[in-house]
Nucleic acid binder design. Structure first.
Length: 580
RNA sequence: CGGGAUGUAGCGCAGUUUGGCUAGCGCGCUUGGUUCGGGACCAAGAGGUCGCAGGUUCAAGUCCUGUCAUCCCGACCA
């Protein structure tokens, strides 16, 4: 392709709306343009890479025995009503009506539809297992679209669904998808880790996320260097750390015979303020948060320096919606201003973290504005409804597997695999007859990859101050030929010649035949991240050109006639090791 | 949805505090010329309902009210 003829609107300056590298570069390199918040159009260069990622996904899914099909993106409401998700999705679902006022939505995910198709067409155990997938546009009216293509309202996802006779079958399908995902992200050149994820209220029996390590990631990952345990912070189990037992400076610590005292603490609401007021550590306080769980209110307690893990709380309660109660509700329940809630005297359920159970003589709110209680002890002074692991794991916590210290890092979730079990097959009555003529519910799994998000993740991990550094597998073109001086006939001839040779060999090549200054061409070539650049300059007359690698910056002179062979050698080297 | 910010030419911005006559600058774009190894130079151009709607005023990009959009920070997910 000739750069003079391609639609490649590169930008010299960074659009103000873009904050992170991948977003900025996707706009600057002319890969895409925004149409509305969270809605993007892909331009030719971007779409080439997009399709290459799709193709990698397709090849690996096919290799794993999954079958591609495509559902519609506009879907009738009835299936979602049947599964209960017409309600669950809430305002996140794009809804519309047809001329007869029938309800439809733009598909946010397709579990119901796949289940429905399989249910109607498959009756026998002989037809199982079955893995179906599609690469299709999804619609979610996200509360907050973010970071360009990282979190969109319209996005393309590869979603696969497995149907098995039983749990053992599901395990096999799940493993196949897991392995396929590893191959996909390997081929994309990503540095990723697979982490245990929350399977949540979905009632699934297992779930893992494929995370690309990146500071701009929205997910927190707990990782153990020693045993390689990795989990989403939402999921990671916490080992309780005893406290309040040792502190030399605190006379009351460890003693059971002290009794609760009410202390005036005017305007002391936060843990920070309490620390100042009592001149002590945050782990000598227990915080009490009031939550609204669907229709009821509950109290949740954790040590002062801990964070409540709402996923764990939600799973324990089995509720659909969970949010911090508003201040009105808090006032009503605690009979105090926000900031003075405590467990004693509350007549709602109190769920406490395991660490709170181990605390001695600690400080809580008094449920009275301007007062706290000291020397409080669990069981002696109040009775919790339940004691569970309720907090977020943090840096330095002990690994739940091996006891070593875990560290927390950020990740971009590019893929998620999920053992669904029978949640949807049961709701939609997706059953088959086994070899004994017994009707049984199919056991399902679902498996997603965000295509554009993967693309953005590749850029996050592969860029420098000059632009994108594409791995060969997903580069829009493999080679760009740059005649340094477009008015030098020899250079132009040599460049055109090389271009023709590469095209003949089937190599995806660009030739920058624009009448631009060399600096402009070099900058654009770097910006759009083409892996190999061939500079045709001064020595063209001697039959010598330069070959420059985008990734390493390595620059060397080679003979014109060696270019095709050399390019193919490098490509073979760079792509040959992938996909295993 | 809560908190913060911003809307002026394709992109990046100034001008708004203290209202004033034809709304500026850089990049990009067009034409001609000179250039040609890391975003050239000279000359001449094109391009703007100042987000939108009301209002105040002799006069509004500037003040007031409303509204919309976009971005950032928090609860959801590929």
């Amino acid at each position: 392709m000739r750069v003079s003829e391609i639609f490649m609107p590169t930008l010299r300056e960074v659009p103000a709306e873009a904050e992170i590298a991948s977003h900025q570069l996707m706009l600057r390199a002319g890969l895409m343009r925004k149409l509305a918040s969270g809605i993007y159009a892909f331009l030719p260069l971007g779409y080439r890479t997009f399709r290459k990622i799709e193709q990698i996904v397709r090849e690996e899914m096919d290799r794993a025995g999954a079958l591609e099909l495509v559902m519609s993106s506009i879907l009738p409401a009835e299936y979602y009503i049947a599964s209960g998700r017409w309600e669950v999705f809430g305002p996140e679902m794009f809804r519309l009506k047809d001329r007869n006022k029938r309800d439809f939505c733009l598909g946010p995910t397709h579990e119901e539809i796949f289940t429905e198709i399989v249910k109607n067409e498959i009756r026998s155990y002989r037809a199982l297992p079955l893995i179906l997938y599609q690469i299709q546009t999804k619609f979610r009216d996200e509360i907050r679209p973010r970071f360009g293509v990282m979190r969109c309202r319209e996005f393309v996802m590869k979603d696969a669904y497995s149907f098995d006779r039983d749990e053992e079958g599901l395990d096999v399908s799940y493993r196949k998808m897991h392995d396929a995902y590893c191959r996909i992200f390997d081929r994309c050149g990503l540095d990723y880790i697979v982490v245990e994820a929350d399977s949540g209220s979905m009632g699934g029996s297992g779930s893992e996320e494929f995370m690309v390590k990146s500071d701009i990631g929205e997910a927190d990952i707990a990782y153990c260097e020693k045993c390689r345990y990795a989990a989403n912070v939402e999921k990671a189990e916490c080992i309780p750390v005893p406290c309040c037992m040792d502190s030399e400076g605190d006379a009351s610590a460890g003693r059971e015979d002290v009794s609760v005292e009410r202390v005036a603490t005017p305007n002391v609401r936060t843990i920070e303020e309490l620390m100042v007021f009592f001149n002590s550590r945050p782990d000598q306080f227990a915080k009490t948060l009031i939550y609204r769980a669907d229709d009821k209110y509950i109290a949740a307690m954790a040590r002062g320096d801990r964070e409540i893990n709402e996923t764990k709380l939600k799973n324990f309660l089995g509720c659909i919606e969970l949010e911090l109660a508003d201040s009105e509700a808090v006032k009503k329940i605690t009979r105090a201003e926000v900031g003075f809630a405590g467990p004693i005297g509350l007549d709602i359920d109190i769920i406490i973290d395991r660490e709170v159970e181990m605390m001695k003589n600690f400080v809580v709110g008094a449920n009275e504005t301007g007062y706290h209680l000291i020397n409080v002890n669990v069981y002696k002074d109040f009775k919790p409804t339940a004691v569970i692991d309720l907090r977020n794991i943090t840096d330095g916590d002990r690994c739940p597997r091996c006891g070593a210290s875990v560290s927390i890092s950020k990740g971009i979730e590019v893929g998620h695999i999920f053992k669904l079990g029978t949640k949807y097959s049961r709701a939609l009555n997706c059953v088959y007859l086994d070899e004994n003529g017994q009707e049984r519910v199919m056991v399902m799994g679902s498996y997603g990859i965000g295509i554009a998000r993967t693309m953005a993740a590749i850029i996050e991990q592969g860029h420098d101050e000059n632009g994108i550094i594409w791995p060969f597998e997903v580069a829009p073109y493999h080679v760009i030929i740059v005649p340094v001086n477009q008015s030098n006939e020899v250079q132009v001839d040599v460049a055109e010649n090389i271009y023709a040779q590469l095209m003949k060999e089937g190599i995806e090549a660009l030739i920058d035949d624009r009448d631009e200054r060399p600096g402009v061409k070099f900058k654009d070539a770097d910006l759009i991240g083409i892996p190999i650049r061939i500079n045709v300059g001064r020595k063209a007359e001697e039959g010598i050109v330069e070959l420059k690698m985008r990734s390493s910056g390595e620059l060397r002179e080679i003979k014109v006639e060696d270019v095709p062979a050399e390019v193919m050698r490098i490509m073979g080297e760079c792509m040959g090791t992938r996909g295993k």
